[in-house]
Simulated assay, not measured.
Amino acid sequence: MTAGTVPAKRRRVWITGGNGMVGRNLREHSRAADWDIIAPGRAELDLSDRQAVLDFVRTQRPDLVIHAAGQVGGIQANMADPVGFLVNNLDMGRNVIMGAFEMGVPALINLASSCMYPRGRNHALRESDIMTGELEPTNEGYALAKIVSTRLCDYIARADADLAYRTIIPCNLYGRHDKFDPKASHLVPAIIAKVSQAVACGEDEVEIWGDGTARREFMYAADLADAVWRAAEAPAALPQLMNIGLGDDHTIRAYYEAVAQALGWTGRFRFDLTRPVGMQRKLSDVSLQRGWGWTAPTSLQDGIAATIQFYQQQAQAS
């Protein structure tokens, strides 16, 4: 058996952050039925409590950990609470990864973030670019925490070749179970909420931070879940560090236009040039991913339509 491959008779997986957007998409995916999933919520297991995490792993004995938990948010949230984004993500990453390591869990898939990449790069971001330049200040704390967790997995894999501790770096995500409050959400769900409000209130203007020319790569969260479950079948076959993304991007204005078209809103955009926009471009190099044999199946139009439907269903239920 290949090192780090999860044997068919031992298919117990612990998903951290199982109630978050990524965790819920993982649990909804068709391949989830092949696994015995344990995904305690925050009230059941505090990931910042090292001893509680150790006791949990000792008791549950998972064959695989998928570390998807984290304090996440867009530019506003990161700028409002840099201490929390650094310390909370640092604590969770260290406790989960070291808890798995100390309890002998053979495989772990760590979900990192493209925020780890240096700012100001014009080329598609390669895995080798990490720690080669200054980070984007608006999410530096979050990025630093994710870099530490990524390095920790790397060190563990170097120290013991029988342990398949790997890191996947997703591009920006959106989709079902996202956060739609503009104060806490990422770009696409925030756009859906803003344009939906404009439709509901009969407003003919929506504000965009910056001039709309910054470019972003957003993948539908269910597609990430598809990639992660594929990785879960043979974690040792993954590169130590691998981007998961689309390999193409769009301007921020284009995302607004796509949402406006999907909702039938025909108003105008107002650009607030005093607002921060983060990196001018953040595009993943997906060469390793393509060599691994996977591409995202969902188009931007289909992903936005499904996310709008989820948003509307949640609004009606509340």
Score class of each variant (00 low, 15 high):
Ala8Gly: 06
Lys9Pro: 04
Lys9Tyr: 14
Arg24Ile: 09
Ser30Thr: 05
Asp34Tyr: 09
Arg50His: 10
Val53Phe: 13
Asp63Gln: 12
Asp63Phe: 01
Ala69His: 03
Val72Gln: 01
Gly73Thr: 02
Asn78His: 09
Pro82His: 01
Gly84Leu: 04
Gly84Val: 02
Leu86Gly: 13
Asn88Ser: 13
Asn89Ile: 08
Met98Tyr: 06
Gly99His: 02
Phe101Lys: 07
Glu102Ile: 01
Met103Lys: 08
Pro106Val: 00
Leu108Phe: 08
Ile109Lys: 05
Asp129Asn: 10
Thr132Asn: 04
Glu134Gly: 02
Ala145Ile: 12
Leu163Asn: 07
Asn172Cys: 12
Leu173Pro: 04
His177Phe: 15
Asp178Phe: 00
Phe180Thr: 04
Phe180Ile: 15
Pro182Lys: 12
His186Ala: 14
His186Arg: 10
Glu203Ala: 09
Glu205Met: 10
Val206Phe: 00
Gly210Tyr: 08
Tyr220Met: 13
Leu224His: 01
Ala227Leu: 13
Trp229Ile: 07
Ala231Arg: 08
Pro235Leu: 06
Pro239Gly: 10
Gly245Ile: 09
Ala262Thr: 01
Arg268Leu: 13
Phe269Gln: 06
Phe271Tyr: 15
Gln280Gly: 07
Lys282Gln: 11
Lys282Glu: 15
Leu283Ser: 06
Asp285Asn: 14
Leu288Asp: 14
Gln289Met: 15
Ala296Gln: 11
Asp302Gly: 03
Ala305Ile: 01
Ile308Leu: 08
